[in-house]
Simulated assay, not measured.
Amino acid sequence: MLTIGNDNDNRGCGLDFRSITKGVIQLNTYYHSLYYFLDKEFLSTQEAINHLGISKQGFYSLVERGKITRVRKGSAVLYFRREIEKQRKERRQNRYRT
């Protein structure tokens, strides 16, 4: 059994290779599901602009008027995908109104 610990200490720290591998797999699964959630529910600034097909100035105007919510965590800035899709739908409907 592979143990991790001081070479002079035969007891190790009680962790074997299998438990470490299992922990790493669980952590990778957690990060993968978190990444999937963020990708599914949020858009970056550039993704939102591209999705709406408008200029940066037009996009930031929508944000400043409260039409789109900005979510910040540290230096990360994200926008709710549903709000962007709602704006896109409204823009399309307004375009074809007579």
Rank of each mutant, 00 (worst) to 15 (best):
R81N: 10
E90W: 08
D39C: 08
L34M: 06
I68N: 02
S75N: 07
Y36E: 15
I54N: 00
G66W: 03
C13N: 15
K67P: 01
S44V: 00
H51S: 14
F37P: 11
Q57N: 08
K56R: 15
Q46T: 14
Q87D: 08
G74W: 11
E64D: 07
Y35D: 13
K40M: 05
K22L: 13
V24H: 01
Q87R: 08
G23C: 11
Q87G: 02
V63W: 04
E83V: 03
S33R: 08
Y96K: 06
R81L: 02
T21C: 09
G66V: 02
L2P: 00
L15S: 05
I20L: 09
L62V: 01
R70Y: 01
K40G: 00
A76L: 13
Y35T: 11
E90K: 09
F17W: 06
F80M: 03
N6F: 05
L15G: 01
Y60F: 08
R18C: 12
L34I: 08
Y36H: 12
K56T: 11
G14V: 05
D7G: 10
G14D: 04
Y96F: 10
R18K: 09
S33F: 06
F17E: 15
N6W: 06
R92T: 07
R65S: 15
I20C: 08
K89M: 14
Q57S: 11
T29S: 11
I20A: 12
I4E: 07
A76K: 04
S33H: 10
G74D: 05
K67N: 08
T69W: 11
E64H: 13
R18D: 14
N94E: 12
I25Y: 07
R72P: 00
D9E: 11
G74R: 10
L27G: 06
Q87H: 03
R81H: 14
I84Q: 01
V24M: 04
Q57Y: 04
L2F: 05
E47A: 14
R11H: 12
L27S: 14
M1E: 13
Q93V: 14
L27F: 05
Q46H: 13
K89I: 08
S61A: 11
F37S: 10
M1Y: 13
H32Y: 11
G14S: 01
G12M: 14
D16R: 09
G53T: 14
R81Y: 06
T45G: 01
R65V: 15
I49D: 01
E90H: 10
I25C: 06
I54R: 00
G66N: 05
Y96E: 09
L38Y: 06
H32C: 09
V24R: 02
T21H: 09
R95V: 00
I25R: 03
T3W: 13
S55Y: 12
D7M: 11
R81C: 04
S44Q: 04
E64S: 08
A76E: 06
T3F: 12
R72G: 01
Y96I: 01
E41A: 11
Y35I: 15
Y96W: 09
